[in-house]
Design a protein around this nucleic acid. Structure first.
Lengths: 197, 197
DNA sequence: GATTTCATTATACGAGCGTAGACTGAGCCG
DNA sequence: CGGCTCAGTCTACGCTCGTATAATGAAATC
């Protein structure tokens, strides 16, 4: 209540943001095909046509949601890469010990849950390739960088998939500290070999 | 041309098998929501109603497809577990060096591509839990068995996801021998710790 | 205060979905 | 041969989907 008179254009921007947020949550929870524009719009408190008005189409909304949620640095931040114990920092970020308030890494969920749709899968592939290139050129510097970066992504993706998407209890309800302890040597092994490289 | 007079019941069984096969291929390629019964039936050379006749419903067909494709021992065979160098055996099985003629591990693809659907996701979760229990009780015997088994599954799933579903070139086109060499120490690390356990 | 603008809704269309029910026609058996 | 069985098809229903078009009503402008 109270303050802002909320000019018309501001209200429009708020509506747009509400749809974007609702879309992000909905896509993360049910995937591209699993939710309709009516449901997304309803959660944003508007009608279905608002999606088309502000994003052109359902596909347009999805694209913007993916781009937006991938803007989060995932775990490939420069400070992470420069840390003395990279592996543990990555592990902690992956498990979510840093506990950012926002929903953690739901960009992955969105992509994985949407692999059934053709257009969504195309977008997902593009983002994955991009993340792979970033990992290959900036994190891994030994052995077979491309393959190692891909395995690193596989590990991250598999962990997210099993814990968040599939909801595997052994990961979802596990003690975060234990997960970090188990993940750290794994990540270290991917990023820096112990033999013949 | 030629031989079998193909009795009526045999023809029925053949049709059923054709639908099951078409469903397996279709679900693996497009996910549960990504393909309709008409398309599946058409690929099997019959009409859509045959799906309901033989499997009760689309969901019934999916369940049977999943059960059928999961009958493949994935990589948790007794001989694998008993091998002296378990990790390498697992890695080779995962990469597919053993090159079974059938489509490799498409059970994973079916599950991953179908996570958008509610019923499909439920079935997927059941299968994953089952695989996790098997891994936890029969493969991992140190440290935190449940968490380690879950991470093992994560690694396998992530690798399959990135290589087969997402089609990440760095994995799909990589030299299998290199992949095995990189995966072996990873799997060994998951299954048998190097420190404090 | 009258007029224009525009965020939003209401209604509807066409397509595709899964599936129910009636029908068809060829193989089986007396 | 004549009746029955049953694999398979045809048609149609109810539903939901994404989205185009027209109407509404309050804020913005003059």
């Amino acid at each position: 209540m109270s303050s802002s008179p909320l000019k018309r254009s501001d209200k429009a921007a708020a509506t747009r943001a509400a749809i974007l947020s609702a879309g992000r949550r909905a896509f993360a929870a049910h995937g591209y095909d699993g939710v309709g524009v009516r449901a997304i719009a309803a959660e944003a408190g508007v009608t279905a046509m608002m999606v088309n008005r502000y994003f052109g189409s359902k596909e347009g909304l999805f694209g913007e949601v993916v781009t937006d949620s991938m803007r989060d640095p995932i775990i490939l931040t420069p400070e992470n890469m420069a840390a003395p114990d990279m592996a543990r920092v990555f592990a902690e970020a992956l498990v979510g010990i840093t506990a950012r308030d926002a929903e953690p890494l739901d960009g992955f969920q969105i992509l994985f849950r949407s692999t059934g749709s053709e257009t969504a899968a195309r977008i997902a592939r593009e983002r994955i390739e991009h993340a792979h290139q970033a990992a290959a050129t900036s994190v891994v510097r030994v052995g077979h960088p491309s393959e190692r970066a891909a395995l690193f992504l596989s590990l991250v993706a598999g962990f997210q998939l099993m814990r968040q998407v599939m909801g595997l209890d052994a990961l979802a309800k596990a003690d975060p500290a234990v997960l970090v302890d188990l993940l750290t040597p794994l990540i270290a092994e991917v990023l820096r070999p112990t033999a013949r490289d």
